[in-house]
Amino acid sequence: MPKDKLALMLRRPCKGRLEARGRSRLLAAALLLFATPALAGGPPVDDDWPCQQRKTGAISRAAIWAGPEVSGRWDDDAQVAALARKLASRRTPLDEAGPLIDAFAKEAGADKDKRLTLLFDGTLDLINGERNKVMAAITRYARGQKALAAKVRDDADKVADAQEGQGYGQDITAPDALEKAHPELKWDKRIFDDRAQALTYVCESPVLLEKRAFALARAIQEKL
């Protein structure tokens, strides 16, 4: 379960002192409040994969293409390569893709089906490359979050231990008191929370690329 996953991330090794554990839990609870939406659902397959969406390998050709298979490299045909780059780029709106493919098909000549298939190959290669990069970035991001969570946890413990040593009394268990006395802790928490929220959107990126690859494959296939 995702909640357990994050709780594990934030759990502090037991020192055997009840008060200290109580403080740690309060902080963990405060962090959890913000972090759970981004990490909801999904089987715990990969510890560094923080998204609700399942982590899947590259988009397979067969999942989106029912057209022929041809030999040859798409980047050997300059015109095909240029159009594949344009289509794969997220800067090209999808509704502009149709007319571009249409124009290409009309001028593709005798080898039309072969060149359209190569165009599809190129588009898929490029989108898969982009998707790989995005997924690696998401994993890095999750690792950064883990490290930050550990830092917040340790700092909170240190601060709490120090206060306890000075004999501050009962109110030190309040997270507010900790944050006021140690603003850097508050900042780390805030960065953690912001990133956790952003993750929801970041996790959509691979899916958006899958949708784009499918839509382009379909548009190209229609011209065969």
Partner: peptide
């Protein structure tokens, strides 16, 4: 067994 697809797909 769809040719070209993994079992997970």
């Amino acid at each position: 067994d769809v040719p070209g697809l993994t079992r997970e797909e």
